[in-house]
Design a protein around this nucleic acid. Structure first.
Lengths: 214, 214, 214, 214
DNA sequence: TATGAATGAGGATTCATTCAT
DNA sequence: CATGAATGAATCCTCATTCAT
């Protein structure tokens, strides 16, 4: 494994554990047993490390989430999708603990983040549309858009929100699954009879996951 | 005005503007034209300033939000309530931009925050219950709880979320009102015919506010 | 009791407890429940407080130790004298924990200290001379002077020395009495048969004291 | 010469000159023409510098003073030993000017200091025993122990004591030699006829040294 | 590629002291 | 006499970053 990648990995790990502002470049170098000079040979500055982590995040996102065509959208696909979104967010959770501050310092990163958010929005919209046309949801356009926005907000805020809800909260996979359940809980009351069945099935799936992990 | 209060005010202002991690105690002192020594005469350390700001926040919260009795809950009261919650969050918005990090450093603050969150939860539940018993909502217990959780999450995350949704996003009152609208949008699809009317009225009110402020 | 005197007393107490460098003027004021301004009304600066404490010490010393005439010197007088010297040193023990540093900063104090030391020397010499002329000691002039010097050194260093001989050593009266015993132990091997008897008597007296205090 | 060692050396020099409490880490850095950051690259904090100086002292002590076997103890060896002890104390004299305060702050250092003191005690005891068995001294066990204690006290206190005996006293080598003479003066009245001769010889040696240095 | 010593501006904080009231 | 808010230079220390090797 290349040093550059090891740095990214170590930084990600340490940031997730202790928060980005509390991890210095020296911490990262020491953790890897390399010199600070070497770290700066591979990265111009700390910002660039964060940047690279985000790039990896965005890349992971893009390969997993080819914009879905409406016909492909099934309950199964949805499950896979939600699963993957939250897992990704978990993997890069340090990011969400400081998002406003990190983005303020780095306009370029802000731009990239917005693109990712846009992709998330597109996908959520596509799924909701597909649900509606499949007769699982019964909503007007405005309500559908509002629903999509809410889902995006919940997805994007979940980890940060949970971090603040308990002293010394560790974000585990169970917490992630509860996030998916929270989103399903938002969709369920809006579904048709057929839709409800599907959602309940998904919920059952995630309840299992939560219990297995607790 | 007492120096102690001026410090709290200046700190709040600067934190909101530039983010707490980017504002040093010297910045605050210089901004007020006082010496660093004087600042430390009034506060043992930076943490204590943040603490005091939070205490003020909690105090504001508590005097404005005496736990509502269910009979008092009307659409008008709700409007006043939501308005006030978001305004308060706006006033102390720096806090929300770094919540995980701020709380991690200060377990006492974490405790206080959870109490405030618990109060928020109680009030939201009281309102939703009242809505249901007033025939504005039609939901089972589990769904009602889920709804309340979603509303609390949206309320608690709105400012942080919005901060990340645009480059150099300034959180204006209009953004705040959109948060209220978002929450109403979550409630609306779940209301009865009578409930829908009330919600639409509230939405209309806030749409006006948004337009006035933009 | 006058504020000025209360300040001296409080400072002495705190200095003894925690060491002069670790006690700020604010500590002293807070301990007395007075304002720092008030403290500085009575004393130009911290140095002056130390100075005043020393003056009190020198005063105590002078009233207790009128240079002894040789004829007055008996074993009993000696006992009273040694007792008093060490008690005084105990009362002002903070001083001995930092003597070089305190004196370096304050030439006037250095001067006063030397005068006190000179008085100590005179008295020790007087006693030793008297012992010799009384047939208790058998020494040549040079040896007598050397003995007096040693005794002065031991007396002046005892508290500082003991402070360093155990972790977190508290200087108790027992430690003080051991100092007297140490000095008697220096004198004893040099005494005549008659002198030895006297010294052993004194030693017995102090051994009792030590045991009572332990 | 390594920067780390240069820092230790400069600190030692400045501490000796002006007293440890009066020398800041910035002083040391400036004195060496290096940045404060560099100093803190080599030492975690000021305490660690003091610690390192003491370690060097303890090391010097240990290599020079292998516990002496009784047969090796001759007047010549004693001379070398005393010489070295006082020289070492002179080299690290800042330490003795603040011993109580320095040890109070640093329990680990206190522990090391006590070990060094214990070594000193062992060596002094060994020498005195050897003197007695060689017929140079005539003392009972209790008196021998008492003598050893006195010698240890004088040795350990000499520099601190001398520092306080004159305004702005500079501790020169002559002062050191006088310390040795003081100790010899304590031993001399207790010696046998043969012993006295040896001691007088040593005294003569040191009187020469003092005169040469004054 | 990698080292690790070095930088230096800047951080939080302290404390003897002053001064208007 | 007394208050207590205010000063400001100084302290210890951090950390992102550089650079000669």
């Amino acid at each position: 494994m290349k040093t550059r990648d090891r740095i990214i990995l170590a930084a990600l790990e340490l940031f997730n554990e202790s928060g980005e502002p509390n991890i210095t470049t020296n911490h990262i170098a020491a953790h890897l047993g390399i010199s600070p000079g070497n770290l700066y040979y591979h990265f111009r500055n700390k910002e660039e490390i964060i940047h690279s982590i985000f790039d990896q995040y965005a890349h992971d996102l893009s390969i997993r989430f080819q914009p879905l065509e409406e016909t492909q959208i099934t309950a199964d696909n949805l499950l896979v999708y939600l699963d993957a979104v939250f897992m990704l967010m978990w993997r890069y959770r340090f990011f969400y603990a400081n998002l406003p501050d990190i983005l303020r310092r780095d306009p370029e990163l802000q731009e990239k983040y917005l693109q990712a958010q846009e992709g998330l929005h597109q996908n959520i919209m596509a799924m909701m549309n597909s649900f509606r046309s499949g007769g699982l949801l019964e909503l007007e356009d405005a309500d559908l858009l509002s629903l999509a926005n809410t889902l995006k907000l919940v997805a994007s805020s979940w980890i940060c929100y949970q971090t603040t809800q308990a002293p010394g909260a560790k974000i585990t996979k169970a917490v992630i699954y509860q996030g998916v359940l929270q989103m399903l809980g938002i969709v369920r009351p809006l579904t048709t009879a057929i839709g409800k069945e599907q959602v309940l099935q998904l919920e059952a799936h995630y309840c299992e996951q939560v219990e297995r992990d607790v």
